[in-house]
């Protein structure tokens, strides 16, 4: 085969994979605008499911709760994660390697295990289930992502800039605020968006930690799916997926175009 044939074959393969990745999402989005309750074709355009959504207090409450939790998680995880990244960047100390390795369990251990372990522990210490437990759990899952992203940004930072600022008489806080933070700001923004996505899309840990009747949006959707599908779930799912893809597109912009050029 010629080089051109290989190239064409490769591009077809890539196109097929992209089709596989996006087709079901697009079908779901299309069906949320279909008038038929049982996903019947032919397709008739209707926005009735979105209108129904506006009247569904349970879904609206869960959506508001999910956003609120994600915002809390973003604020806490971004602050704590950025602090830890700066400390690890500035200083060499014994055990640093171990601290870096400790970031892997929250990412690498299946959420089923982490989630059930949290449930057991939070019950054991008397916190139980509910929104505070969900926030504590999500923050722990988000911190490693923030540290990884901010650390990657710090790797492009010249530490002699800090030395220069110190030599010119700036105290530690001024150095951080006026020199370090402005440089790593794109990394922190990207880390924050990752943290938001980790929390907003999180299902497994929320599922074990949220209380019935006080659940996040993904947990509510899971419960609803198990009872049977309705186009209302399509509508809310379409909104969710659009929102989280938008957040990630912005994050990609920040982490990539943030200042390397």
């Amino acid at each position: 085969m010629s080089a051109l044939a290989y190239r064409t074959l490769g591009l077809i393969w890539l196109g097929a994979v992209l089709f596989f990745l996006y087709a079901p999402i697009l079908v779901m989005a299309a069906m949320s605008f279909n008038a038929s309750e049982f996903y019947q074709l032919p397709f008739r355009f209707s926005t009735q499911w979105y209108a129904r959504l506006a009247d569904n207090q349970e879904i609206l409450d869960a959506a508001a709760r999910s956003v609120l939790i994600a915002l809390c998680v973003t604020a806490i995880a971004t602050t704590l994660g950025s602090m830890a990244s700066i400390a690890m960047f500035r200083h060499e100390f014994r055990g640093k390697r171990l601290l870096q390795v400790l970031l892997f369990p929250p990412i690498a251990i299946p959420w089923l295990i982490t989630g059930t372990a949290m449930l057991i522990f939070f019950f054991g210490v008397g916190l139980g289930r509910g929104t505070p437990a969900v926030i504590i759990g999500h923050v722990a899952l988000a911190i490693p992502y923030v540290i990884v992203v901010v650390t990657a940004r710090l790797a492009t930072f010249d530490p002699t800039l800090e030395e220069a600022a110190r030599a010119l008489g700036a105290d530690a806080w001024t150095v951080t605020r006026r020199v370090t933070l402005p440089w790593i700001a794109p990394g922190i923004v990207a880390g924050a968006l990752f943290a938001f996505a980790v929390s907003f899309d999180q299902f497994v840990v929320s599922y074990f930690l949220s209380e019935p009747g006080d659940s996040t949006l993904p947990v509510l959707i899971y419960t609803a799916i198990r009872k049977g599908f309705t186009p209302e779930i399509n509508a809310i799912s379409t909104i969710i997926i659009t929102l989280s893809m938008t957040v990630m597109l912005i994050a990609a912009r920040y982490s990539k175009f943030g200042g390397d050029r």
Partner: peptide, 29 residues
């Protein structure tokens, strides 16, 4: 294209599984 491949990974996994349920069901799409 790279971004397009990675993007779904950062969207809600539950919702994506649900979308397959709509595609795969009998008499479905």
């Amino acid at each position: 294209l790279f971004l397009l491949v990675i993007l779904p990974f950062w969207s809600n996994s539950l919702v994506r599984i649900f979308s397959w349920a709509i595609v795969l069901r009998g008499n479905g799409v």
